[in-house]
Computed example of a mutant assay.
Amino acid sequence: MTDAHLIERQVSQEELLRGHFLHAFRDTVRLPNQALATREYVVHPGAVMVIPLLETPEGLKLVLERQYRYPVGQVMIEFPAGKRDAGEDPWRCAQRELQEETGYTAGQWARAGVLHPVIAYSTEVIEIWFAKDLRLGARQLDAEEFLDVFTATPAQLMDWCRDGQVSDAKTLTGALWLQNTLSGSWPLVWQSLD
């Protein structure tokens, strides 16, 4: 099967914004029926999200964050995540973001997959990583970063997702991965941090 009947072809491009980490464009495209249309989108450097699994005497807990997100004007519950630096390996980025934001380092890592959070207007791709064998150290937040770190059970997270307390797309996708991983449906390949 071919997708030729769906493909849009770029005719021209106009740069709208070159910000600190976002780059916005307006393209004129030729549609499959040969008509012209415009597409506005943001080029994003990519990011990672970490699903940290913390073994406690009470059972498995998840390391989560609460952070105010200015565009939506509210504090959101999220898994640790962050933007990749130019040329940065996603696994190294995951390790860096987990340690900087939560203070935890992990002895075991597993890459789960990728998600495209806003395909209609952004090139952003987020790699999903699981981390376990956690050890707590000091956080190293960026100067403009303010967030709370807390733990919750997988059941609590699923309840918050169901009830709408968690509405962040990457965290909802992480909850899907978590649920299927814990059930054994989606096995992970773990690697040690050497």
Rank of each mutant, 00 (worst) to 15 (best):
83 K>G: 04
9 R>A: 06
86 A>D: 15
191 Q>I: 13
127 E>M: 06
75 V>W: 11
118 V>R: 12
94 A>E: 00
37 A>Q: 05
116 H>F: 10
115 L>C: 07
94 A>W: 03
166 V>E: 04
191 Q>H: 10
190 W>F: 09
90 P>R: 04
81 A>N: 05
54 L>V: 10
101 E>D: 08
73 G>S: 08
69 R>T: 14
155 A>W: 13
128 I>C: 02
166 V>K: 02
125 V>G: 02
50 V>N: 00
73 G>C: 09
15 E>K: 12
100 E>T: 08
76 M>R: 09
22 L>P: 03
5 H>T: 13
10 Q>H: 01
72 V>D: 08
149 V>N: 01
68 Y>N: 04
42 V>P: 01
163 D>E: 15
116 H>R: 11
57 P>H: 02
178 L>H: 02
40 E>K: 13
77 I>A: 01
35 A>H: 14
126 I>D: 00
25 F>H: 06
136 L>A: 07
162 R>Y: 12
157 L>A: 08
70 Y>C: 07
148 D>F: 13
86 A>F: 14
180 N>D: 14
143 A>G: 03
100 E>I: 09
159 D>V: 15
59 G>H: 13
168 D>S: 05
174 G>H: 02
20 H>Q: 04
56 T>M: 10
76 M>W: 09
178 L>W: 08
107 G>L: 12
24 A>I: 12
184 G>A: 08
27 D>C: 09
149 V>R: 03
125 V>A: 05
168 D>V: 11
83 K>A: 09
94 A>T: 01
58 E>T: 11
55 E>K: 11
155 A>M: 08
44 H>C: 06
157 L>M: 15
126 I>Q: 02
159 D>P: 01
164 G>Q: 13
116 H>Q: 11
112 A>F: 14
39 R>H: 15
188 L>R: 04
164 G>I: 15
158 M>G: 01
94 A>Q: 01
12 S>M: 05
153 T>M: 04
67 Q>E: 15
183 S>R: 13
2 T>S: 15
1 M>A: 15
62 L>R: 00
150 F>G: 00
107 G>P: 02
16 L>S: 05
105 T>E: 15
171 T>C: 01
143 A>M: 09
187 P>G: 09
131 A>V: 05
42 V>Y: 14
78 E>H: 08
181 T>M: 14
60 L>H: 07
178 L>A: 03
123 T>S: 14
72 V>H: 06
41 Y>F: 15
145 E>N: 03
132 K>G: 03
36 L>M: 07
126 I>S: 00
